[in-house]
Write a protein that binds this DNA or RNA. Structure first.
Lengths: 209, 209
DNA sequence: ACTAGATGTAAACGTTTGCTGACTTACCAG
DNA sequence: CTGGTAAGTCAGCAAACGTTTACATCTAGT
């Protein structure tokens, strides 16, 4: 069956060494599969065998690479947090509502909308809760900072509170649109349908300074 | 140990027949315990033994009164929906933000805030998903109607969409305040802290007509 | 080519899960 | 008091769970 020889072909470039056994790639396959499952079905309803099958990988490798199911879940939270932080960092202050709308609009199983619902999933593990709190805190602080928040200033606490409410609204919309609920017409709304109301919502909570 | 005799005491009023075996009361005990557990820990992470212990009742009675764990969960969703419908029905149109703020503010394990997070819990069962969709649809239609929505009118679809976004915001805030996340300062905010921003949020989405 | 370590596999482990059947106890009409 | 039935108990089953162990196979350096 293996018609293809090992063929390292040393002359080729780096981009595709394509080893048949690559720990890094396997780790990534598990992470991607786990993020989708955890986001869609929740922590407890997802079995390690589900994840391994989705990734096309042996179950025992979850324990090897992530210590445990909880370890894998924490890695998922960290990955989602990094992704959120990265995309939030490159969003200019006045484009915040559009960015939120765009990320909420995509209903793909790997999109940012899916990462938002993942952040609500709980494993009952204290470590995971800590990570989630950190991710959400950082995200809300980024959002608040984009609208003029400076920590320590008088009245800054309320701005942060309002940013967290805006974040909550975004997460709520993402969840109500998600596959397990699909509330209509919200779930069928396009990015254009969402951006208007979302802009009014964000501007009402956090007036552009 | 039973120092107290049966003592039906026929002369007393109705309010406390207090039978030692009362199917209706047992059903209610199970429902209350289940609603708290399901709302706090989610469906899959909650075991029927947990619920029975909380209710101080034998495990087998869950199967007797609710057929199965899923049947109990569906009964919880229906109960939460009824409660939501009832309190929403007696809220005048202009008091909507205050009502939302008040219900989100109470962090008790039995309060309406807890019912909102329950509505996001999924069991993977199609019947439960159907109930949840119905409850959320009815709630958003009530909210939309309070702000001038009339089904079928031109442009009414967008009003309903905006009502669902407001509902999503409320649910999102409730979840981010809930025990498993506790995002600060949102989680520590009082009803007075919430009502202002919440009013601006709702009024921005659904201008009072 | 050879070998040591990295990577992947298969099977089983002990526990927990939802649920059931046979049984006991309390209630109330007669 | 007594019998019939509603209400509650108890022990256990079969399946599914996360994890571990012992083994097989690949990769890379020499």
């Amino acid at each position: 069956m293996t018609a293809e020889p090992p063929v390292p072909s040393a002359t080729a470039g780096e981009p595709a060494p394509r080893r048949r056994r690559d720990a890094t790639e396997t780790r990534q396959l598990l992470l991607d599969a786990a993020r989708q499952r955890f986001a869609r079905d929740g922590y407890a309803a997802t079995t390690v065998r589900d994840i391994a099958d989705d990734a096309g990988v042996n179950v025992a490798l979850i324990s090897r690479y992530f210590s445990s199911k909880e370890g894998l879940f924490e890695a998922c939270l960290r990955a989602a947090g990094d992704e959120l932080h990265r995309t939030a960092g490159q969003t200019p202050a006045e484009r915040v509502p559009e960015a939120i709308a765009r990320h909420i609009a995509d209903l793909g199983t790997a999109g940012l909308s899916s990462q938002l619902t993942l952040l609500l999933r709980s494993s009952g593990d204290a470590g995971a809760d800590e990570i989630r709190r950190g991710v959400l805190s950082r995200a809300s602080e980024q959002l608040a900072a984009a609208r003029g928040w400076r920590p320590g200033e008088p009245g800054s606490e309320e701005i942060l509170l309002r940013a967290q409410m805006a974040l909550a609204a975004g997460i709520g919309v993402a969840v109500l649109r998600s596959s397990s609920i699909q509330l209509e017409p919200l779930s069928a709304a396009t990015e254009q349908d969402l951006v208007g109301p979302l802009r009014e919502l964000v501007d009402a909570l956090l007036p552009p300074h």
